[in-house]
Amino acid sequence: MNTQTEFPYLGLKASTDPAQIAERLRYRPAVFEFFTTPADVTPAGLAHLRTMIEWVQHDTRRIVIHHPMSWHGTHVEIASPDTGLRAFVTQSTTALLQVAQEMDVQLLVHGSYSEPPAEIIAEFGSIAAGRAAVLAQLDHWRDLGGNHIMFENSISPTYTYSDPVYNAEILAHHYRLAYDTSHTFIAAQGDNDGLVASLRQLAPAIVHYHLVDSMGQRHDSLPLGQGKIDWTRVWPVLNPRATDIYEITLKDQLDSTAQRASHAYLEQIKAAAKQ
């Protein structure tokens, strides 16, 4: 069992593929996040997921299930006029939340993904209406999920953490927040001032971080230190009571070196801050 108790944690991410999980567990992560797909929310997939969670629980109790990102080639927008997608959101979130509650792990759900303003306006009439639709859905899942569900930000204006006015509204809903540093940085157009202000404003509600670098222009998921995020400014405003993973794009899904190197980089930032 991993006994690391101090933030930042070595947090690693993998699919439900046993080979990926075995590679991650070699390094005894303090936090483990499962990246799931629609195949993982079928009856067979859910049974396999439970088995994989039981395996990881021998190493750590800090486990997060990441709700599927895509469905039939499109991002899983939690508020959508597509009846098929809405049905999938309901079925998959209900099933994964049941797993999370029964196995005492966490479920992470995206508030939105990368839907551009023009599409939001076409679907909902305005950005404000799109945000209201997203918040209504998140309220529903917050009430059902309690302390086993959290909501992650995106680069889409319907659920971004880059707008301080919207952040205040989000805080008023008392959500448990999952915070992706790169998403805010991209939504803030590469502005470190905006990122740091957002992190500070939302810190009390943040329970989990996706620590990832970016050039601030598109979703690039870079290792820490390889983008334009100023981690010396970010580190002091992170909530030390949260968990974290390093959500870095890997060239080889059986080699988590980039995730682990990012942890080493942040540990260096932490050590320098103590001096």
Score class of each variant (00 low, 15 high):
R241K: 15
S214Q: 01
D220R: 00
R241E: 14
S221Y: 10
H219Y: 07
D213L: 02
R241P: 10
G227T: 09
R233A: 15
N239R: 09
A242F: 09
D213Q: 06
G216C: 05
L224P: 00
R218K: 13
W231Q: 03
D244E: 15
M215I: 11
D213P: 08
I206Y: 02
G216A: 04
L238N: 08
L224T: 10
G225E: 01
W235T: 02
W235Q: 11
H208A: 09
R218C: 08
H210M: 01
V234M: 11
H210W: 01
I229V: 10
H208N: 14
R241H: 14
V207M: 06
Q217M: 08
N239F: 07
V234N: 06
P240F: 13
V207E: 05
P240C: 12
A205N: 11
V234R: 00
R233M: 14
A205M: 08
D230M: 00
V207R: 02
S214W: 03
A205E: 06
S221A: 12
V237M: 09
I229F: 11
P236K: 08
P240W: 12
G227Y: 07
A242S: 14
D213K: 01
W235G: 02
L211R: 00
W231T: 01
R241W: 10
T243C: 05
M215K: 13
S214T: 06
V207Q: 05
Q226A: 11
W235N: 11
V207K: 02
R218P: 00
W235E: 09
R233C: 06
R241C: 14
D213C: 07
D230P: 08
D244T: 13
L238Q: 07
M215N: 09
W235R: 11
H210N: 07
P240H: 14
N239Y: 10
D220T: 10
L238C: 09
